[in-house]
Nucleic acid binder design. Structure first.
Lengths: 233, 233
DNA sequence: TGAGACTATTAGGCAAGCCTAACATTCTTG
DNA sequence: CAAGAATGTTAGGCTTGCCTAATAGTCTCA
């Protein structure tokens, strides 16, 4: 026992605040500033809850926010965001590589664990895992000082028919069903693919994956990021 | 994101309730039923807070409790307690063995992690660690179905001068200073010791540990549990 | 037995986080 | 530009978990 107040010990915000920062950080990659509605939907909360918390995060200096103008992470918020993503993805690597969870299963437990993990623990963990650069879904892991690796991937839609590439990342790592669907078809980071056809009508993509022919819908295809066919030097 | 309500997902009580159950379970080993004051002191909370929570835990069926009569865990409470101890001590093993934390450092991070760990994760972890029987302090790890290994250790005070034994466990694994003190002197689980003297006056114990002579006070000595000198078959 | 010392509980309050209902602002579009 | 749609905030209320101050049992010992 002897724990009294966990909040004081962690030196970061509450787990709840961390959830908001994660949501805002993720949404900022799509559009900035981030609206209240988007955050509410992403967290499954009501808009008033979000409004209230934005005011608080703004007081804490994590978010820059003015009523009716949306929110965006401050530098401090961005640092926290990077640290949360780092913790989350390192846990995913551990769960996948050491404990044998499938890539479609690692997201929820990593969500729980990340808020219970101190810097000391996560840095030892990073060392234990050999400082991996990406999570099992190919998403980059920020460094301990909050730097993001440069991203050199592109979308499937930028590829020409007949060209080959290597899957480097699959987006929406929280969508277990989609990840299962892709894994069943061998479409995972590291796999070599050849684009056989991209239907003009509805965007359905036909791929060659390890000798087999696979068709995937436009929405799923848009979640795939590819890089050059050979492994980088 | 997409987490909404963590409480619902876990199927156990809130982390706070788990703290109480842990405290009560630990105190029950000393005396039962457990008084409000003891719980309050152990958790660093006020007695009214404890009173209130005892009423709630009683409603949840985790604790049997009547005003002014102290609390004791129900069977359901005991099961939860065993599961919490299991989670806590498996994390301690992992932190110590895989991440390289000293045995005096593992208690606090394990406290945080245990409440963020599902059954699925902890059972994979147990397998990954090879189903260890004790934590780094020698404390037993209950099985997944809540069974405690039989304990066959005894206290130092039951030993005669000149007899040898093996340290099997050190109590009060939350007392980092004491653990550091003992580790510095080679007094850790597995170490062979010989009792050279137990002072009648103040209970100071003089030990031979790996060729060196070490003196420890009565209070520290009372935290040591020993077993037969040879490792059990 | 009855005074004082403990031990517990009740009363009343506060912050964090969440909600619904009501109101306000901004955007879109005829 | 005005009306309705969409978005956002305010008001007010709830639970969890904690607190202090006041009250109430319980135990000990002269």
């Amino acid at each position: 026992m002897t724990q009294a107040n966990t909040r004081a010990t962690r030196g970061r915000g509450s787990p709840t605040e961390e959830h908001y920062v994660e949501a805002i950080g993720a949404l900022e990659e799509l559009a900035t500033p981030v609206g209240t509605a988007a955050i509410a939907q992403s967290l499954g909360l009501s808009m008033p809850s979000v409004s209230e918390m934005l005011a608080r995060l703004s007081n804490n200096g994590l978010v820059s926010y003015a009523p009716y103008s949306g929110a965006s992470l401050t530098d401090k918020g961005k640092r926290l965001f990077a640290s949360l993503v780092r913790r989350h993805r390192l846990w995913e690597v551990f769960l996948n590589r050491c404990l044998g969870f499938g890539w479609e299963e690692v997201y929820p437990p990593a969500c729980e664990l990340e808020h219970a993990t101190s810097d000391a623990v996560i840095e030892k963990m990073a060392e234990f895992l050999g400082h991996p650069g990406t999570c099992p879904h190919g998403a980059p892991i920020p460094s301990a000082d909050g730097k993001w690796p440069e991203k050199r991937s592109r979308g499937l839609s930028e590829m020409q028919d007949g060209h080959t590439a290597r899957i480097v990342r699959v987006l929406r790592e929280d969508d277990a069903d989609c990840l299962q669907f892709l894994a069943d078809r061998g479409i995972v980071p590291g796999a070599s693919i050849r684009v056989l056809d991209i239907a003009e009508f509805d965007g359905t993509v036909t791929l060659g994956v390890e000798g087999a022919t696979r068709a995937i819908g436009r929405d799923v295809a848009s979640r795939l990021r590819v890089g050059p066919d050979q492994a980088p030097a």
